[in-house]
Amino acid sequence: MRESLQRTRQLSARFKQTRHWAALQDALVTQGTIRYEKGGRLVWRMDPPAESEVILDDQRATIHYPALGTTQTMDFAADPGLRKVFQSIRSVLEADLERLQPIFELRLDRKVPLSLTLKPRLPEVSRIVERIRLEFDKELRLTQVRLDEPGGDWTEIVFHGHVIETATR
């Protein structure tokens, strides 16, 4: 897993996110593309009608809603708690176990195909997410993420159509 991640220079995939929130009568389903470069930024783009683009890097999150014509920037330097939460989201989406370990306790549910459960170590993260489950395929590509929130709400993200650019040895 570690080797696979180290080889990955760039990754893109399609995703389908299903949000099961008590505030909503039905599940909120959105689709889009995720793309990230190693050591660079992660771009989370959602297709219309819920079109939006979130760009995450070490310093900030920039959120753009084309339909609303607004762009919002959240500077992590000013809010370390926010940094941790977004770092977690980013590390989960990148399946970056090295960076997840200080924030979450990792539990191995299944070896092949790999399945992990993460439980937050930090209170600022556990207030938002109670448990995260990551599912991988045989090639150790992230295929599914399930985020369970403290109030019972949960979100499932399924990834497919991975395009991975790896470093040649």
Partner: peptide, 10 residues
């Protein structure tokens, strides 16, 4: 639209 975004979690 905002609720579908990743930051809606926070």
């Amino acid at each position: 639209v905002q609720m579908a975004s990743p930051q809606a979690l926070t």
